[in-house]
Design a protein around this nucleic acid. Structure first.
Lengths: 346, 346
DNA sequence: ATAGTCTATCTAAACGTTTAGATATAAATT
DNA sequence: AATTTATATCTAAACGTTTAGATAGACTAT
């Protein structure tokens, strides 16, 4: 702790501590003369108010907790950046807790009790730290809601699908629809889909967008074109091979993430199928590598920064006790690169 | 704030607040009987000590500040993960500040005063928040040292080269040497280098490792094989083209980062040079995409987690006022993949 | 000149803990 | 039984701010 306190300033400036506090916070008028004197002393002595004391008295910490399931997952830093960006403007600070879920309890999540244990702990510590609210970044927030509500602190979720009022998400259905629309506009009608695991909400939503496009554009619907992947590159590879072996292969493939798109490229390159001349590919996520592959992948960028920003905005509103009306979901943005072209005329 | 305080617990459990505090902190003996009673009441009322009050009295916040120049830079989250991992074990919390340097003042850093402004602000706020120390993650920490030392709080730098005692870095020279040694062991003697920008310390250190290997293994030294890049893919592309046009082109290339290695691959693929049969490539960083390219790039992985962990460990020591003896630098690890093979016999 | 208004500053209590020292009770020693 | 020692608990001050209410001085309106 800095050893010098408001008393030292008051003494040296020949005023009461109250006056010092007033110039610091601007809560009452202070004569220009004395204000300047106080400010000078503060400067000279390098005084910084003790935030612990302030928080105690003010009953406000200006701090929120951010719980991330794993900060090293690709989309998390960008979200944090968005949160931070907004927090900065509102003079809020971020107490970060990284659950390290994958590393601690493995990828299986078979032991949800263990997950709850870590999550509860994190929340508990943050609450004790007097955070004014919490933002949760991750895909496994179930059950957390009830727990936190016990303490009457607001919480908002990002990057996760909860039934909780405040779950900030991007418009997944629209994104998928837009990807299809883009391909249709390029002239494609036989479009293959490689999905993520079926029990994930993004997969389902993206299918919705897909079907919506199929019916709206009156595309011929062929169930053979729909392949269930698992988000990993290998599944993209394997399923593309299957797609290419079809009697009438698709002229374009939508992979529900860039990682699987990598598999598509690998399969195509092995089979001598040229991308984009023989086959167009669209990915999702705009992962950095998507710009480094040959060809550079056209992909749907997720509005991560915006999501973080919006989450912080909503949380701030909740903290102030204001109603937060549902905002429009931030939407994805198509990044056009080299992996899409018009289909060959046969 | 949770409305219930230690007084409420004390009242309901028929003891003084002191006793409650003792059972909470274990600072004095409390009869088993009463301890249990107090604990029960605490449970029932869902009481969490007010951390602001605790900090104020204890003069300890158990909080450190982490300043990142940009959390979205690829290596930062992993470092934060390491810090967090260690902090967890020591019951320390992390107050995160993201400078967003690139986004705020552009990539030029021509306005270092502006940088100082943001950095100073961040430090100032953290100090006011009573952090017990600071970890700085970034490459531009100059001048910060003096500023913080003013307040007598310890600071440790990561991922940056300072003359400050406590700058946690990995062994760059060794990494470069190891990369060379690996290629030599595969049979290469004509090895091209594509460096990062010359005025960066990593570039210089990696050159040192390179020269060390050249002399130790008595490789023929040809200045034509040394190309100065700028960390970007395009430079890797352009310089590889130059290298391939040499009368006697190299049989292997070390690119000082994976991004430039992408350029190497692009150039090779355009020229019909097969990797790894005709040309071997090693990158640095083990970026995620390096595993998705064709071929998968063999690369040097940076010990980011370990650096973060070590930074936190050292900081904790400093906070306790203990001397921290210089630890051995964490070293990089070669990730063997598909981009290196023995050179063709001609 | 007197009362009323403003303005600038001060006094002192409060925020919710921790903790040194006081006190009361029980156990051990004589 | 009287004294000492050990154990369990209590009392109250302190941590460094903020802020309601008091006070004093200067200005305004009568």
């Amino acid at each position: 702790m800095s050893e010098i306190g408001i008393k030292d300033i008051a003494a040296k400036a020949n005023v009461s501590t109250a006056t010092v506090s007033y110039v610091l916070n601007g809560t009452r008028n202070v004569k220009l003369n004395t204000r300047e004197r106080v400010l000078r002393v503060i400067q000279e002595m390098n005084y910084k108010p003790n935030n612990a004391a302030q928080s105690l008295k003010r009953k406000r910490t200006n701090t929120i907790g951010v719980i991330a399931e794993d900060v090293t997952v690709f989309n998390v830093p960008e979200i944090i950046d968005g949160i931070n960006d907004c927090a900065d403007r509102m003079d809020m600070h971020i107490l970060l807790t990284n659950l390290r879920l994958d590393k601690r309890i493995g990828r299986e999540f078979d032991r949800m009790d263990s997950y709850r244990h870590y999550a509860d702990n994190a929340v508990s510590e943050l609450l004790s730290k007097q955070v004014e609210g919490i933002i949760y970044i991750g895909v496994h927030p179930r059950d957390l809601t009830g727990f936190i509500d016990t303490f009457g602190k607001p919480i908002v979720y990002t990057y996760s699908y909860t039934h909780h009022d405040l779950s900030i998400q991007y418009n997944d259905e629209q994104a998928s629809y837009d990807a299809m629309a883009y391909l249709v506009q390029k002239g494609h009608t036989r479009i293959g889909i490689i999905s993520g695991v079926m029990d994930s909400t993004p997969s389902r939503l993206r299918f919705n967008g897909f079907y919506k496009a199929v019916t709206e554009y009156e595309l011929p619907f062929d169930p053979q074109l729909i392949k269930i992947g698992d988000w990993e590159a290998e599944s993209g590879y394997r399923l593309t091979l299957e797609l290419l072996e079809l009697e009438q292969p698709p002229t374009a493939i939508v992979a529900m993430n860039d990682v699987m798109a990598v598999g598509v490229i690998r399969a195509a390159s092995e089979k001598g199928v040229h991308i984009p001349k023989d086959l167009s590919v669209i990915g999702f996520d705009n992962r950095e590598f998507s710009n480094y592959l040959i060809p550079r992948i056209t992909t749907m960028e997720l509005p991560l920064h915006e999501m973080g920003y919006q989450a912080m905005e909503s949380l701030a509103l909740l903290i102030k006790g204001e109603k937060v009306e549902k905002q429009p979901m931030p939407s994805c943005k198509l990044i056009e690169r080299e992996s899409v072209a018009a289909p060959r005329i046969r």
